[in-house]
């Protein structure tokens, strides 16, 4: 059941992104920026957390979750340390993802060559 929900929620987010790409003819980078921003806004409106509860990885794996994680981190840190948390909480929450991405990109560049 949780797999079906992850598939449906994740697939639906990707379908929406594909529609934006094909109907507006912006670049994939534009769609990524739009969706990550939408994720942050939806998180602020209290809509993203229920989507995670419903879809599991279907809401966690797509990029809007990155925006959600930033807002979620900020809200928690503001609660803990006050307004300074606005500037520290976001990166704290996404530190693992960014670090893994940067280190694995460096390793991949060292190990692999583009195949064309």
């Amino acid at each position: 059941m949780d797999f079906a929900l992850a598939f449906l929620v994740g697939g639906a987010l990707c379908l929406a992104a594909q529609l934006v790409l094909d109907l507006t003819r912006v670049t994939p980078a534009h769609v990524m920026v739009l969706f990550v921003s939408l994720g942050a806004v939806a998180s602020g409106a209290g809509l993203y957390e229920p989507l995670v509860k419903l879809g599991g990885a279907g809401a966690i794996v797509p990029l809007p979750a990155f925006g959600h994680a930033l807002v979620d981190g900020i809200v928690r840190e503001v609660g803990r340390t006050g307004p300074l948390g606005l500037l520290t909480g976001g990166f704290d929450a996404v530190a693992l993802g960014l670090t893994v991405a940067v280190v694995s990109a460096l390793l991949a560049a060292a190990i692999f060559n583009p195949r064309g």
Binding site: V9, G10, G11, L13, L15, Q18, G56, G58, P62
Partner: peptide, 12 residues
């Protein structure tokens, strides 16, 4: 939809 769904299924 299908490819995104499958990737999220792996995430699950």
């Amino acid at each position: 939809f299908l490819v995104g769904g499958v990737i999220c299924g792996v995430g699950q």
